[in-house]
């Protein structure tokens, strides 16, 4: 059986007046049905462009190459009409700012039932009943009344719940969440993460969670892929990664985080240097300019993402981190 999602050799390039920008290069990923994978990376790591490319949502000057198979079918660079049979139906997406994907002039009811009427052929009362049930499922109290409200009448957390309800309308097999809690307060973030975990258990859907926060990944995912400068540098089950990061960048990222549960006397183990310039990526390993373990080979030869163990991969010339 093919995996639910298989990404192979995905590259994303943008043509800009100041030259070509490589947002992602040679990205390989797989996701099994029902699995949860976190993609962690800093700004410019290409994590968001990756999912936008999968769903055919790249900006006009962007071009994606490679292959993205969903349930065995190629979906990369499909025409919009064909893509719409998958997008929003089998793959749903939620964003950091729900306000950008909700129409501010339409009541929540209109925005929700429309989808069901169009894709599922339900009539309006049936669609409405189903929407109310979904809103209750995502924890919106008094859903029958609130479905008649406009998006701005909801608070940030409630709006994200509405977005999740909309994403679940067609019972997707895969939910992609791009920084779903970044704009929320930490107490509300906890609510949304709990909700996502509960829904995944109830509905058995796969989750692709994109975030900059390793803490969020630790609580919400089974596997994690670390991205840097448009490439995956390490991929591992979460317990393994957090216990013993194999790539210098993963280790640096963990060391950079101030932690609530540990006293860290003295300085944080910060990663030196600046994030990579996507317009002029270094030859060889993209992380080399900031890597404390870099040696001659890192300068000339780009490390491939290769398996260390059956379920672990990393892109580093070093066999073991010192």
């Amino acid at each position: 059986m093919p995996p639910l999602l298989a990404v192979q050799g995905l590259g994303i390039r943008f043509a800009t007046p100041d030259g070509e920008v490589v947002a992602a290069d040679q990205v390989d990923l797989t996701l099994a049905a029902g699995e949860s994978l976190g993609i962690v990376g800093e700004s410019g790591s290409g994590k968001t462009q990756l999912v936008l490319a999968m769903l055919g949502l790249l900006a006009k000057n962007g071009r994606a190459t490679g292959s993205v198979r969903f349930q065995g079918e190629e979906i990369l660079n499909l025409p919009a009409a064909a893509l719409n049979r998958v997008r929003g139906v089998k793959i749903a997406m939620i964003f950091q700012d729900p306000m950008t994907s909700l129409n501010p002039y339409l009541k929540i009811r209109r925005q929700m039932t429309e989808v069901l009427v169009a894709h599922r052929g339900l009539d309006e009362p049936a669609a409405r009943a189903r929407c109310i049930a979904l809103l209750e499922q995502v924890g919106i109290p008094d859903a029958a009344r609130r479905i008649e409200l406009y998006p701005h009448e909801f608070s940030g957390g409630m709006r994200q719940r509405v977005m999740i309800a909309i994403a679940l309308l067609c019972q997707p097999d895969l939910l992609i969440a791009d920084e779903p809690t970044t704009a929320l307060d930490v107490t509300v973030q906890a609510q949304i993460l709990d909700l996502l975990a509960r829904l995944r258990a109830e509905l058995g859907m796969a989750l692709l969670l994109i975030t900059h926060d390793l803490g969020v990944i630790a609580g919400a995912c089974e596997r994690v892929a670390v991205m840097y400068g448009g490439r995956i540098v390490e991929e591992a089950p979460i317990d393994a990664l957090f216990a013993a990061p194999a790539h210098p960048y993963s280790r640096g990222l963990l060391g950079s985080m101030p932690r609530l549960d540990l006293a860290q006397p003295g300085e944080l183990a910060a990663i030196p240097g600046q994030p990579p310039n996507l317009q002029a990526l270094p030859a060889g390993c993209v992380y080399r300019p900031r890597c404390t373990f870099a040696f001659e080979r890192c300068r000339s030869e780009r490390p491939d993402l290769r398996a260390m163990l059956p379920d672990r991969r990393k892109a580093c010339h070093l066999e073991h981190l010192p």
């Binding site: 930490v186 630790a218 957090f242």
Partner: peptide, 12 residues
């Protein structure tokens, strides 16, 4: 305090 995610899956 309890809502802050901890970068440690076992603790989480």
């Amino acid at each position: 305090i309890s809502a802050v995610p901890i970068p440690d899956p076992a603790r989480e």
